[in-house]
Amino acid sequence: MDPRLQQAAQSGSIDKLYDLIDENPYLLENIDAVPFVTTPLHVAASSGNIPFAMEMLNLKPSFARKLNTSGYSPLHLAVDKDKAKFVSRMLLLDKGLVRVKGRNGITPFLLLVSRGKADLVAECLLNSPECIQDETVDRRNALHLAVVHDRFEVLQVLTGWIQRMSQRDADSIEKRVLNKVDIDYNTPLHLAAYNNDHQAYFLFLFNSYFKLYI
């Protein structure tokens, strides 16, 4: 990437962006032609520059789903850098961005679960409920990851949401989420038991009991 473009993305200078486009109209096209590349949107996401990111999405929507050479989308980087406002704004602009699969199959939603960002996890579920079905390459879903990373508050958010959804489609939620086995044939409940995580274990048992009476 042109260092001047990188600096413009870091500082959030939209005027500088257009100066560079005026100098080279194919500036963004050349970046987009590369399969795995750091785009100006990656840089803006890392810096939390919302106005610049919105302008970049206006010009090049494809950048939002482009992975860099490390296997991460712009939203992955925003989560990694703890740019909560940026994540929320991007979710409003395109709710599907939280489901973009990156390295090891991790989506921004699953990364939020792993990092313990309960409020943003709840926001993702409200805007893109299908993300509860997403899983990593080793077939671990959000519940697996919440247990593995000891994120009990996030687990409460996830199971609370599942309870509400179970009132509509109990069997489907049970098969696709609660009883989902990973590559080692472990359900989230199994992992909680193996880790001696009593809070998580009894939370899952409560959910199983709850389902019997809905």
Rank of each mutant, 00 (worst) to 15 (best):
V113A: 04
A170D: 02
A193Y: 14
K117R: 14
L57K: 13
P61L: 06
A122I: 03
A200L: 06
P40H: 09
L191C: 09
K83R: 15
S11Y: 08
L77T: 02
R103P: 00
H149N: 15
M56G: 03
I106L: 08
L67S: 07
V43M: 07
L75Y: 03
P74D: 02
Q167M: 15
L120F: 03
K83T: 04
V157E: 03
D182A: 10
A33H: 10
L5Y: 07
L212W: 01
D22K: 12
Q6A: 09
I50C: 01
L125K: 01
M54E: 13
S13T: 03
L75P: 01
E23T: 13
I14V: 15
S62G: 03
D197H: 13
L203R: 09
D134N: 08
D2Y: 07
F63W: 03
D82S: 09
R164D: 08
R140S: 09
F210L: 03
K66C: 11
A192H: 07
R89V: 11
R115I: 00
H149E: 14
L20C: 01
S128L: 04
S114T: 05
C124E: 03
V43Y: 07
D2F: 03
A146C: 04
D32F: 02
A45F: 08
F63S: 00
D169H: 05
V157R: 06
F52N: 04
N195S: 15
Q6P: 00
P108G: 06
Y185K: 14
A118H: 14
C131H: 02
S70F: 07
F36R: 11
L20M: 02
P25F: 12
I162C: 10
W161E: 14
V100N: 07
V98S: 02
M54F: 04
M54R: 13
L158T: 00
H198P: 00
L143R: 06
F86S: 06
A78K: 03
S166T: 01
S172W: 06
V154F: 02
E23M: 10
S62N: 12
L5I: 09
M54G: 00
K117C: 11
S128D: 02
G116F: 05
M54A: 08
A170I: 11
N49W: 00
M90S: 09
D171W: 00
T187L: 11
A118R: 14
R176A: 14
I183R: 12
N104M: 10
V137H: 09
D22H: 11
